[in-house]
């Protein structure tokens, strides 16, 4: 992986070691397959796994959005 940026790499990557990993799970949100994780008691969307491109234009589903999984 190559980062191409005028920003100092020390600044960009600062805190990389301290980053806590929240376990992610694959589920569906409003019927759309997605990866979600629990952060501070609530669940947020990590990534959509849907193959329908129209799902990616939905206003309520984006990385970081608070979601209620279907299960």
């Amino acid at each position: 992986m190559i980062l191409y940026t005028p920003m100092q790499l020390e600044l960009v990557l600062a805190g990389l070691e301290q980053m806590t990993h929240h376990p992610e799970r694959a589920t569906t949100v409003h019927g759309v397959p997605a990866l979600v994780r629990k952060v501070g008691g609530r669940e947020e969307l990590v990534q959509l796994l849907s193959t329908n491109p129209a799902d990616y234009l939905r206003g309520d589903l984006y990385p970081g959005a608070p979601v209620k999984p279907d299960d």
Binding site: L3, T5, V12, A14, L16, M19, Q47, L48, P53, Y56
Partner: peptide, 27 residues
């Protein structure tokens, strides 16, 4: 930052390409 293969630490504001590409497909 345009975030790619590595998830960047949270002090970075990032654009996630894996979300943008299907958006462009949908458009």
């Amino acid at each position: 930052q345009i975030e790619g293969h590595l998830v960047l630490p949270p002090q970075n504001k990032t654009t996630k390409y894996e979300h943008m590409i299907p958006q462009l497909v949908a458009l």
